[in-house]
Amino acid sequence: MNVILGLAHVYDVNDVDTDRIIPGKYTKTLDVRELARHVLEDLDPTFAGRVRPGDVLVFGNNFGCGSSREQAPAAIKAAGVACVVARSFARIFYRNAINIGLPLIELAEAHDIANGHTVRVELQRGEVINCATGRVFRAAPMPAVMVDILRAGGLVNYLKQHGDYVIREI
């Protein structure tokens, strides 16, 4: 999970809110496959049918704003998305994503990534490479503990395994 290699789906859109990630009417279910079937439906009705496990999503500013529902990152994760790249994330969405185990990386500049490009994301080094163009983008490195939370599949599993936050040096 430390290195993610996937095809990019690019939406150069700002302020995609949690309602567009997963409409409120589907959030009553506890079945994540049902969430996955409707992910990003109002933004792009074809997305749920096209996404393949391991793909990477690329967005603009303030991704995941709106409500604090944990189903939003859960729907994206359930659809098989390996990582979300955005210029910035809404605060609660960011926390929820890490806590449920959806990798994400904040990258101010990723303008040359286009649909269908293969991107390589290395969370711990904070590096995104567009394999199609060879360009390398740098973000803040992700602290080891967050990589570990993601690797465990989320905070519940992480704390179940470790009982506490384990600080390990990189």
């Binding site: 929820n96 519940v156 704390l159």
Partner: peptide, 18 residues
């Protein structure tokens, strides 16, 4: 914080934040 966050705090007295 959210409920899952709070659960982690109840358990450890710690959390991660930016």
């Amino acid at each position: 914080v959210g409920s899952t966050d709070l659960a982690g705090i109840l358990l450890t007295g710690k959390t991660w934040l930016r």
